[in-house]
Computed example of a mutant assay.
Amino acid sequence: MRFTVFRRMMAEEFGEVRAEMLARDHVFSALGGRTVDQALEAGIPPKEVWAAVCDAFDVPRERR
């Protein structure tokens, strides 16, 4: 998954403003206690980050 696709999916699922806020502020235990932005900067693939976000927020399978 490309970073642009990841960001688009975040915006589609949560809205642009909330997606940016979640990426910057929400700490995910599945990402080693990192935010989305920190996880991506640390080199965790966007697909893994998206899976962690989907699990944490119960995103339906058809939108994963």
Rank of each mutant, 00 (worst) to 15 (best):
V36T: 13
R24P: 02
G15K: 05
E13A: 15
D37Y: 02
M9Y: 00
A23P: 04
G32T: 08
E16C: 01
R2Y: 02
R2L: 10
V36H: 12
L40D: 07
A39F: 09
V53C: 05
R34E: 09
V5R: 11
F57D: 07
V53M: 05
P45S: 04
Q38H: 11
A23S: 15
R64F: 11
G43K: 13
R34M: 15
V59W: 10
A11N: 10
R8P: 00
L31A: 09
M1R: 10
M1I: 08
M21V: 00
M1K: 07
A56P: 00
R63C: 08
A56F: 06
R2I: 06
F28T: 03
R63W: 11
G33H: 07
D25I: 02
P45E: 15
E62D: 05
R64D: 04
F6G: 06
F28G: 01
F28K: 01
A42R: 05
P46Y: 11
V49C: 13
L31F: 09
P46C: 05
A30F: 01
H26D: 13
A51Y: 10
A11V: 02
A52L: 11
V36K: 12
A39K: 10
A39Q: 09
S29Y: 05
D25N: 15
M1N: 09
R7V: 08
Q38S: 12
V5N: 07
V36W: 10
D58I: 01
A56D: 08
L22T: 01
Q38M: 08
M9F: 00
V49I: 10
A30V: 01
M21C: 06
A52S: 14
W50G: 03
R34D: 10
R7S: 11
A42F: 08
M10V: 00
E12L: 14
T4G: 02
R61L: 08
H26P: 00
M9N: 01
A19V: 05
D55K: 12
L22S: 04
R34W: 06
A51F: 13
R63P: 00
L40Q: 05
A30D: 12
V49A: 11
A56V: 02
V53E: 04
F57W: 13
